[in-house]
Simulated scan of single mutants.
Amino acid sequence: MNATAESTAESTMSVWATGQQQSRHQRKGRYLADSMKHPAKMLPAIAATVIDTYSASGDLVVDPMCGIGTTLVEAAHLGRRGIGVEFEQRWGELALANLAHARRQGAPGSGRVVIGDARAVTALLPEVAGQAALVLTSPPYGAATHGHVRSSRDSGQPGVHKWNHRYSRDRANLAHQSLPDLLEGFGRILSGCVQLLRPGGVAAITVRPYRDRGELIDLPGQVQQVARQAGLSLADRVVCLLCGLGENRLLNRASFFQLHEARKGQARGLPIHATAHEDLLIFRKPPAEAGDLPDGAR
């Protein structure tokens, strides 16, 4: 992927052209058709670029909230070893099916999925402690997302019909929690992931602001604070484009609801625009001190 970077005193700011193809085209043939039913899938181009940039062949890559297994599939295609944790049995089984599909396509890496609550990730993956080169994941954005939409323009019927817009109806799912509880739970997940990472390992988090009853929630900023409290240091900030780059213009990839909300806001005089990028926050676990290393590694 093409990228530009600008260095700052604390971190690097980069732009990745990850939206040159629409999401469904990035998945076509590479993932099973049922994958489109998940309401908040990570863009494969983002996952692949993160894995290629921040890990090497044979490295261990972990996704504690793996959904349909995008991180695991892209890791397998790049020759990494992947482990995912997924709260929902339905999505975990689909992640395993996608991994099997990747192997049939010749992916040289491997992967497995553990069904469980990532807030206890160290108990679920005790054998991984200190082994992972990269953790790649994304927090949920509430109990439901835009999902798939058919408007009256498409159906000829009045109203808007939505489907595939819920993670689940299980109230124990982190997606159902209030923002403070979501951040507390995600902080526990990150604290566990710090224990899984090897010294100097990377935790990469895709996240974006969202609106709740019209209020813009700075989720990236709050995730940075939670990650810092978990013991991670911010190393890079990446703008992952969801729009495409044409010769003389941006190629819009916004959903029906994103455009609808932007137009409603603009009609009220509010400077609302459709989302055109995903924030990618790159954190590092501090390197080991000499006293923390095994005798043979000093």
Rank of each mutant, 00 (worst) to 15 (best):
T53L: 02
A75Y: 00
Q105Y: 04
N2A: 13
E127F: 01
S23L: 11
P209E: 08
H176I: 06
D295Q: 12
L293K: 03
A267T: 11
G185L: 01
Y54R: 04
M1L: 11
V202H: 00
Q195V: 12
V223C: 10
V62W: 02
S255I: 07
V121I: 09
E74Q: 03
P158R: 12
H25W: 05
E86R: 04
A276K: 13
S155W: 14
R103I: 06
V121M: 06
A129G: 06
G92P: 11
R268V: 09
G296V: 15
A288H: 03
V239W: 12
S35W: 00
P108M: 03
H148I: 11
C240W: 08
K264W: 14
L280R: 00
I217F: 02
L234I: 00
V85F: 03
D292P: 06
I46Y: 00
E10C: 15
G192T: 02
L124W: 05
T70G: 05
G246V: 12
S55M: 04
V15K: 10
M65R: 10
L259M: 14
H273G: 15
V121E: 08
Q266W: 05
G214P: 08
E184W: 13
A297H: 10
G185T: 03
L72N: 03
G244N: 07
A203P: 00
I205N: 02
E261P: 07
L182Q: 13
D52S: 08
I282N: 01
L250F: 15
A254D: 09
K28Y: 06
Y54T: 04
D52R: 06
C240T: 02
D236I: 01
R169F: 12
E93S: 13
R228P: 07
V61G: 01
L280S: 04
T4I: 14
Q225S: 13
R112H: 09
E86W: 03
Q225W: 14
Y141D: 07
L78F: 07
A132E: 01
Y210D: 10
F257I: 12
E215A: 13
P287H: 06
L94V: 10
L96R: 14
Q20R: 12
L216M: 07
